[in-house]
Nucleic acid binder design. Structure first.
Lengths: 226, 226
DNA sequence: CCCTCGCAACATAGATACAAGAAAGATGCA
DNA sequence: TGCATCTTTCTTGTATCTATGTTGCGAGGG
């Protein structure tokens, strides 16, 4: 039973993890904007670890398409491409519609549980929307849409959808911020989506979703090029 | 240990890349099946590099969900989930239909170029189909479908679709290849898909694709559970 | 004035060394 | 024999060191 005698309970949080969180925070928060160049050594020094875990962090960030590594030259923060918002939204729409069609296979009881869970999430969004807490709302929005995909049971789609998350957050932060009055509208649209699911109305779901994402997209584009 | 300066004359392939390809080949080809345990050192020795690039390769494979890394314990090959075949096909269908709708935005000249490129790929499939070269055909099949998605210009979708291809290759390798007489049919179906694209007929494309994938899926499931 | 060659600074890529954690097997005791 | 514990060994995690490639700048020749 020899207890280790170390700071019990406190996870040491691996160096690679710290480097990852640190760098990702820099990017997602926007303190490092697209196109900027960073080096392993620079981050290593600031985090206080060696370059090896930083390298690992950079690889993960590259896999998430937040960083782009150039051999022997360095790493640049991937800028959001002009058409990227469109791409993300189209894929989201496709995956969510797929999820909706898949949800139809559930019996009424199971679908009822899904609907209840979704309504719960939507209820949780009214708070951030009223407080105009944009970052919190962005996370709640993401959780809502991800929940739809997750409920469909397609783990592949769920994983991919989740991987879009950080990218969405990055865009949402820019898209929602200048237009806080849209938040309440978004909550209503979420409610309408759940209604469509509860009614097993695929066409209405797709139509509502398209309008919902179109509005978000347009807001984003409007924010980008005033 | 391997002398590094030996083949330094031309090293177009980085050590990390070699380690990655080597390990991925082991997994996708099925020589390493789900649940098996591998270690960095083992691969490093077999590839003839140090553990550092192997570590990098493992991280990439983990990001692709082909490998699962356990801290301080090792790496296991992720087993293919029971419903994964279904999941993959559904997502493929969704993404390809999305691509088709996107292709409609192209003008006739651009669409004509796409169609011609696709026909080229289909023509290249007749050889493997007649020779019943199943692995080559599987790659050509994947290239065809990926080309459709790539032509749509959605890089996000394209990347995800490519990662699905690896999973599908892996499943195909594991399930003894179904009926070789189907290969010629598949080529014809590919041709029909291109025709639908050339005619800008979304409905026909979706219908043909669904039948195409359904048949593939059924063949796959039939091979898996005899 | 412009072009080119060469050198220095800097960045990564890979190898190696070392430390620490976890599991299997060996060992001693009741 | 059965169990607790200790040791051994295998594994990863991190640091450091060396090699190599890329960039940028400046001197020198046309």
């Amino acid at each position: 039973m020899a207890d280790t005698g170390h700071e019990a309970g406190r996870a040491p949080l691996a160096a690679a993890e710290r480097a990852y969180e640190f760098t990702k925070e820099l990017i997602v928060s926007g303190r490092l904007s697209g196109g900027e160049l960073i080096s392993e050594g620079e981050i290593a020094e600031r985090v206080g670890v060696s370059r090896t875990p930083v390298r690992e962090a950079f690889l993960r960030l590259q896999a998430e398409e937040l960083l782009r590594l150039f051999p022997k030259r360095g790493a640049v923060v991937v800028p959001l491409a002009p058409g990227e918002g469109e791409d993300v939204l189209e894929v989201r729409e496709a995956l969510e519609c797929l999820a909706m069609r898949r949800l139809l296979r559930l019996d009424d009881v199971a679908l009822g549980r899904v609907v209840e869970r979704l309504r719960e999430i939507v209820r949780g969004q009214t708070g951030p929307a009223q407080r105009v807490d944009t970052p919190a709302f962005a996370r709640a929005d993401q959780a809502f849409h991800l929940a739809i995909v997750a409920a469909s049971g397609n783990v592949l789609a769920e994983r991919f959808y989740a991987s879009l998350g950080d990218r969405q957050l990055r865009m949402a932060a820019q898209a929602l911020h200048p237009r806080p009055e849209r938040l309440a509208v978004l909550v209503n649209e979420h409610g309408a989506l759940v209604d469509a699911i509860a009614d097993r109305d695929v066409a209405r779901f797709e139509e509502t979703l398209r309008a919902h994402l179109d509005a978000t997209h347009r807001a984003f584009e409007a924010a980008r090029r005033p």
